[in-house]
Amino acid sequence: MRSQSIYKVPQGKLLKISVEYDEKEYRIKEIRITGDFFAYPEEALELMETKLQHTVMEQEVLREKISSIIATYHIEFIGLNAESLARGIAMCRP
């Protein structure tokens, strides 16, 4: 199943998610995170996309996973944060 969302981060930038997921378990198969936010280093976003594979699309699960990736790989977002990214992805669920 493929789904998309557009989410304006409060006090931040526009986040666009395109995700392909398993319909039964709502697990991410492949995800593309795009938008006009900033991330340092930039290449870390591709890493984030890879690391989010197989994660269940539930906001709290996603937030924890994203926060842990941010901490592990020293990623700095501007105009986006773990909470909003989790919300944007969870919004792709029907």
Binding site: K16, R32, I33, T34, G35, D36, F37, A39, E42, L45
Partner: peptide, 9 residues
């Protein structure tokens, strides 16, 4: 376009 944007979008 910004590094994270989709060209086609």
């Amino acid at each position: 376009i910004g590094y994270f944007q989709s060209l086609n979008d």
